[in-house]
Design a protein around this nucleic acid. Sequence first.
DNA 1: CTGAAAGCGCTTACAG
DNA 2: CTGAAAGCGCTTACAG
Lengths: 339, 339
Amino acid sequence: MSDGKVTSLDVARAAGVSQSAVSRVFTPGASVSKTMEAKVRKAADALGYRPNSLARAMITGKSRIIGLVVAYLDNPFYPVALERLSHALQERGYHILIFMANNTQEAIAQVVDDLLAYQVDGIITASVSLSGDLAAQCASAGIPVVLFNRGQPGSGLSSITSANVEGGGKVARFLLEGGHRRIAQIAGWQGSSTGQDRSRGFVAALQEHGMEPCATIDGMYDRDTAAQAARSLMAGADPPDAIFVGNDHMAFAVLDALRALGVPVPGAVSVVGYDDVPMAGWASYDLTTVRQPVNRMVEATVETLLAQIEDADRPVQKIEIDGPLILRGSARIPEGYKQ
Amino acid sequence: MSDGKVTSLDVARAAGVSQSAVSRVFTPGASVSKTMEAKVRKAADALGYRPNSLARAMITGKSRIIGLVVAYLDNPFYPVALERLSHALQERGYHILIFMANNTQEAIAQVVDDLLAYQVDGIITASVSLSGDLAAQCASAGIPVVLFNRGQPGSGLSSITSANVEGGGKVARFLLEGGHRRIAQIAGWQGSSTGQDRSRGFVAALQEHGMEPCATIDGMYDRDTAAQAARSLMAGADPPDAIFVGNDHMAFAVLDALRALGVPVPGAVSVVGYDDVPMAGWASYDLTTVRQPVNRMVEATVETLLAQIEDADRPVQKIEIDGPLILRGSARIPEGYKQ
DNA sequence: CTGAAAGCGCTTACAG
DNA sequence: CTGAAAGCGCTTACAG
């Protein structure tokens, strides 16, 4: 109710106690008598006192701030993840300093620099990887890093992903069982672990059945690139009867492109995505897709990061969380199909 | 390249200069000789020194942190806005502490408390309003607040919105000119200024032509509520030939519901939304809608906030930015229609 | 241009 | 349980 520049010393004077006493009242777990607590709280309320988190951070060496680096928010998987991530962190008393970085090492280096300057306790990157140099900087500053939805073998960084290789395999077997014989792939960005792993698992499972993708195009996790890929696939002499698309975000663009072409789905071509974002369940798309269990991925991310913050010796973790194939209307369902 | 706990004193000692000198080298605009600068930078680089932003914030009284409060990320208008907002702020050297708050005053009070404790220089709320009590707390702490995409008359808070009343009017006139005579409304949440204003402008323009909406339902900015509203509207004895939906997010649900019902759009009923999120342009929805000029809204938000941070006497601003009606396929276009 | 000193607002041993 | 004192890492008048 007052000036905004009220310090613990002001409260101490008003209550006729020491600054230490005020501090203890606002430090959970510190030992103060009932009388002291009452006196201090009364004065604090009257003055509108609120401990300065920055000062506290300086002295304790813990800012309770987590740096979050996000590349793209147009893929609807990330807004959902971000929402959950921030709730999970807020619940545990952490705060989020958020940075949008387009996926260039230059931009990311700048962001990491800012993050370290603000003394964050830990860093989460979503769909962003870190150069060895940057990873080393964080390590030498003692700041743990967890990669969300991206892996980076050999980086010494923890990562949480879905089981992408297995997921790709599930899609291949599902399409094969459905009788598809010309199976194309509009892959996720091959510069990312997720794009590579899904593609790898997909191709491997196909090969186990003596097949190959009839075509593979890198969709770059981009709508326009993916739509263009779909058009060129369908324009060929012998178009595919199924397309595995590297994520839902691109799959929607593919579905729109096929609709514009007048190609019936799944009549002429089955389409399968990856992620199971909310929109995949909407009537207009009704997309068969592999679910990334975002809740569990977020939980694992937060647990892993906080464990490393609390115990610096905690080993690096690479966690993969399996998700089911969700059957909807965009792909032919084999008779009596069981997952 | 080193320990992570390197301070300006360490650099000073290594360079054989004073701590003040080190500080000046890292303070843009401070006066240091070339020689001094070189000596200090060399030592700083060798030690891997990075000024501690928290300590700097304490001493200068400027944290260069902006608090951002966001309610929902499932409406795709907000991820886009958030992306732009954070880029605009990053460019100007500010950092974002982000909080998700469901729209209850309780949650918001907690968030504001945290924000003030972290000594943010200013606060932006997106689709969230502040109780008078909370607004007063920010004011007494000297922290400016700007409401993005929400107004709050009488709060003494700056706000940036699109011209919602005018936008609603545009939709009404467009539908009237298109020959629609039974025009219903699935309004935005009537507890929000945006929902109220769009609805008010819409009804007023209808009345100028001697008409009334044939039905009005509050869609609560919620997909399920909106879809249910669409179904009940179409189930009536005399269903509408046009529906104005309070935002695109709900309009997509309405379109999905109509499709499921087999109601042709715009054959049997025209649908108009509000926002012009990217998805509105996608082939599956092709939604006629009023554009909220998100870039200009973001620019205005950032300018207004920073102006108030730099000059505490800067008057409160309520800015409304006009946006065009974007014609697409979901609503009948009048012959020779001009905006 | 440069340095010594004070101080931002807090927490935390250390005594009592 | 309580208080006096030191110190977190910086910036900024104030002298020189």
